[in-house]
Design a protein around this nucleic acid. Structure first.
Lengths: 200, 200
DNA sequence: GATTCCTGATTGAGCAAACAAACGGCTTGC
DNA sequence: GCAAGCCGTTTGTTTGCTCAATCAGGAATC
């Protein structure tokens, strides 16, 4: 088995811990303990806590975007492209191996003070939005999607994905399974964008 | 006019600061300074930081629920009830006087460790969900809404509201105004739930 | 004068980051 | 082939600071 470098071990531990406990509740000690390396290595490899947080988030975000890209590529028309996007989004977020949570924590909060890094991350996030917008435009052109404003609707749908995630995490007693909930979410999106009759 | 008690002043300052800076970045000193009272009063009235955070969130949540309740009461059928709910939700969240942000911070994060308080808050949140579900059931019964699962769809729509908020706060360069975005969000919901033709 | 409300300096814990010292592998000169 | 010197990595202790919570007592109110 390929040996993992200590730097990589630190990043992995950071993704897990930042995701689970958030920025403030995660300490250098916890990270280095979980990674099984000395505390001082953290500053040496990543400079400071902020930069490590950013590196952890970016790592997940890049993986996420590559998955979304792959998912939309095979779609036969715009509407299925949008639905593939949504399905991939939800599946990625539900998979414990992706360390999705750290990305959730990275973006929405003022934790991210370093404005340079923040700018880079926002630019990357825009790619997510763009991937969806392309499918919406395509769907309007090929007639599988009802006429609507692509940019704004892309925002609405991404918002729906974000919210669906949060609802799943938060909801105390899940009504049915997460699977049910996600299926219903996809149906909801399909009803909202489909042109003409409901058939697939 | 009755002067605001120091306890109330603390709560107000806490709502503003927790909302703006989050739990960890908000200190006793900042709160007591803004409230214009002594630092020690904080522990005296609220016990500890966690409890104050909870009190701040609950205060906003109760106000929020009363507004939602009022908004849905006047609706003439289920579909308009749902749309009134959504409009009220978005308007509340955009109004700077409501201290909406502290509520956003309160729920999704492990900041809220005290499991008793967390339980109480989740129960209150369920009321929001219930208000919407009632309107969905009504709409299905009166024919203004297409047949769907009320409980799950209520979750989806609440998720959409949550996400819309986040998107608005996060998006670097807003595509058009918040107003546009919210209007599009409402249209999206309407398309997704409406039975039959698109007319109002 | 007693009870309740209020004050802000003090305390002690916990943290990010700095630091000096040990380690190991890699080059260079012979 | 080998010894000497060098530089990036690794270690864990130390430092200096911030903050939540305490506490002993002061002010206000009855």
């Amino acid at each position: 088995m390929k040996s993992v470098t200590k730097k990589e071990a630190l990043l992995q531990a950071a993704k897990e811990l930042f995701g689970e406990y958030g920025f403030a509740e995660t300490t250098f000690k916890k990270i280095s303990d979980r990674a099984g390396v000395a505390l001082g290595l953290l500053t040496h490899h990543y400079g400071n806590k902020e930069k490590l947080f950013f590196a952890a988030g970016m790592d997940v975000l890049e993986h996420f975007i590559s998955v979304l890209r792959a998912a939309t590529e095979g779609a036969e028309n715009g509407r299925t492209g949008v639905l593939c996007f949504c399905r991939a989004y939800l599946e990625f977020s539900i998979d414990p191996h992706t360390n999705w949570l750290v990305l959730v924590r990275c973006s929405p909060y003022s934790d991210m003070k370093a404005s340079d890094d923040r700018e880079i991350m926002l630019r990357k996030f825009a790619e997510v939005h763009h991937l969806l917008e392309v499918q919406l435009q395509r769907g309007i052109a090929d007639g599988s999607i009802t006429p609507l404003t692509p940019a704004t609707t892309a925002q609405v749908i991404v918002g729906l994905m974000v919210g669906a995630n949060r609802t799943r995490v938060l909801t105390p007693y899940t009504y049915g399974s997460s699977q049910n909930f996600y299926t219903e979410t996809l149906t909801f999106v399909e009803r909202a964008i489909s042109s003409g009759s409901a058939g697939n």
